[in-house]
Design a binder for these strands. Structure first.
Lengths: 189, 189
DNA sequence: TTACAAAACTAACAATTGTTAGTTAGATAC
DNA sequence: GTATCTAACTAACAATTGTTAGTTTTGTAA
């Protein structure tokens, strides 16, 4: 067993609560109660509520950025790149569900510098996918629709996998990947 | 000009703030400041913060339920039904962007009875779409993939249209409908 | 002018918020 | 046994929260 540090335990519990009720609606006393200690004791391990948020959001954002970099390093065709991005998203979603929820819903509560850094990462990420889509449209392997519609219909789905992956009886990850690639690339009908 | 009541103005302004920062992070004083009055004055028009939330969430949920009922009343083929659902979603998203954001992100802060009612509406809604998809798979007009994957990849996209419709230079609604139907039904490639 | 209703105000409330200071119990190292 | 470290504790703080009570202003109808 890996001896998760007390700090990591706190962040995990906090992430669970943040996912359920949102960052602003969760108090330090809530987190403490989940840990079965008093609120003041949390400060032996973390500097404050904001630290929990920024550790959560930025570490997940980092995961996605690294995943994207790895995919882009492979020089695949646009279609193959999209497939790889989808699979990467599923891998991250499955292993960091709580953190993704917090990132999606509470990134705007980051403090100034970290907010700036996060938005930059997010914009860069989107720009990567946008470039792939535009390239595919140009070479004729991707349907010639409004690029923003293609981009956001894909990203919307990928960003919210965490929402239903956990409750819907744990679909096998490989089936999930296969079907998700199929539906996003080839559609419903 | 329709003479929007003071109450409606308050709810509109509150919705804007809720969308930006989330229900819990917005105070009555924030809403009042946006209206250029004092917080206590809000209570001449509304019974409390919770009333604003429940009016917002339940009215949007009602819109979707009615839209869905209208679509289902038409007895179309599964594929045509999905097309109609997509277009209905876009219509509601375009006209109630703020309310949809609040519904998506803050429904869990409804109080007990209203929460129950909302969840019931939402589940019923999903069940409608699920039934259409399963019917289509059975008759062979919809791709034979895991129904939950099909369902949630569609719903995820539809639920977050509001997020990017407003910022991305206002794509024409008809183009949006056409391209959205194309990408969701026929895929990217 | 008077009367009335709508909608704003000031002042305050009790509860809750994130956080700090100072202290204490228990384990490990020397 | 003494010192050190970790991680818990109690008690309290200043600020902020949603909300209430009571009062004043403003516009309209008689």
């Amino acid at each position: 067993m890996k001896p998760r540090s007390r700090k990591e335990e706190i962040i995990d519990q906090a992430a669970k609560l943040f996912q359920k009720r949102g960052y602003s609606a969760v108090t330090m006393r809530d987190i403490a109660e989940e840990m079965e200690i008093k609120a003041a004791s949390l400060y032996n391990h973390i500097s404050g509520k904001h630290e929990i948020l920024s550790l959560l959001v930025l570490s997940v954002a980092q995961q996605f950025t690294e995943g994207m970099d790895a995919v882009c390093a492979k020089t695949l065709s646009p279609t193959e790149t999209l497939k790889a991005i989808i699979e990467m998203h599923i891998d991250v979603a499955v292993s960091h569900a709580n953190g993704i929820a917090v990132m999606n819903n509470d990134w705007m509560h980051l403090e100034h510098d970290e907010l700036t850094r996060f938005v930059a990462m997010r914009d860069g990420y989107e720009e990567n996918v946008r470039a792939v889509i535009k390239e595919g449209i140009l070479e004729g392997t991707i349907r010639d629709l409004h690029p923003e519609v293609l981009l956001f219909s894909m990203l919307s789905t990928l960003r919210t996998i965490y929402l239903w992956y956990q409750k819907r009886g744990k679909i096998d990850v490989n089936i999930l990947k296969k079907d998700m690639v199929a539906v996003l690339l080839k559609g419903v009908v």
